[in-house]
Amino acid sequence: MSAIINQLLEPITNFLYCPTPQSWIDEAIKGENLPTLLVDHANCELKAAQTAMLLLRRYAVDKESGDALLAWLKPFEDFVYRKVGDGNFKEHVNLSKKLISKSNFEHGDELINKMVMLIKEELHHFQQVWEIMQNRGIEYANLTASRYARGMMKRVRTHEPAKLTDTLICGAFIEARSCERFAKLAPFLDDELETFYISLLRSEARHFQDYLSLAEKIALQPIDDRIELFKQKEAELILSDDSEFRFHSGVLIGN
């Protein structure tokens, strides 16, 4: 792995409590698991965009802007969840209008700027995964979600601003783990996928820091204890047994 990749990965591995177990990597690189890996990866890219959109609609933008965000993601959601459309998303990559920040949310403009950029990147990466799937004859099959994100969100507090702070910290860990797995997988994949996964690491390596910086500003107090709580929970999910292989699954039972 090149020096620049190691440089990108260092803050991510320092942030996470544990590396991905070798047993997960061994499972992920099996040829029969490639369709599941790519479909679930595409799902993760879309879910990341949806999470950022929900944060904007809930906290940062007015109703008209919220409606524009819904319209932006609708073609992708229609295709994945309702099998509507031909899978050509090139004309839907960009947002159709400027978003208006709510006047009562101090960090609205910063949240908008960072999350809109993140959504653009995630939707672009979703499209890239889908194109790779098409070229390899892999259908977009329905997959159940892994327990990973749900397990993380169970620890989110329900009162504000703690809820938003915790949600952003969760986002930081999910983004960091995704990048760590891009790097772990890349050397074991064919040339096309290795190049693609390294490009994703380069593009998404800063995402976890964007989430963290927002969490720190919104919390108005140190968040080290919350980071530690989610760090331990994230490691527990990654190291414990899982019954199904997914992009963020733990150790497969029997492996």
Rank of each mutant, 00 (worst) to 15 (best):
N14R: 14
Y17P: 13
C18I: 12
C18T: 10
Q22N: 05
S23G: 07
W24I: 01
K30T: 02
K30Q: 09
N33C: 08
N33I: 00
P35Y: 07
T36E: 07
T36I: 15
V39F: 05
V39R: 12
A42I: 02
L46Q: 14
K47W: 12
K47H: 07
A49K: 09
Q50C: 06
T51D: 15
A52I: 00
A52M: 12
L54V: 03
L55W: 13
L55Q: 11
R57I: 06
R58M: 07
Y59T: 02
E64K: 13
L70D: 15
A71I: 04
P75E: 13
V84E: 15
E91P: 08
E91D: 12
S96H: 10
I100V: 10
I100D: 15
K102L: 08
E106C: 08
G108E: 08
G108A: 14
E110M: 04
K114E: 12
M115E: 14
M117N: 15
E121T: 13
E122F: 05
H125K: 09
Q127R: 08
V129H: 11
E131L: 10
I132A: 11
M133R: 08
Q134T: 13
R136L: 02
Y140R: 14
Y140C: 05
A145W: 05
M153I: 01
K154G: 06
R155P: 01
R155D: 15
P161L: 02
P161E: 09
K163M: 05
K163E: 06
D166P: 01
I169H: 04
I169F: 03
A176D: 01
R177F: 01
S178Q: 12
R181H: 01
A183V: 05
K184W: 04
K184M: 09
L185G: 05
L185E: 01
P187I: 00
P187V: 00
E192Q: 04
Y197W: 02
F208W: 11
L214Q: 09
I218E: 11
Q221F: 07
I223T: 13
D224Q: 11
R226K: 11
I227V: 09
E228S: 08
F230A: 00
K231P: 00
Q232Y: 05
E236V: 00
L239G: 01
S240K: 10
S243F: 00
E244T: 02
E244K: 09
E244W: 01
F245G: 03
F245Y: 13
R246I: 00
G250E: 00
L252P: 09
N255K: 10
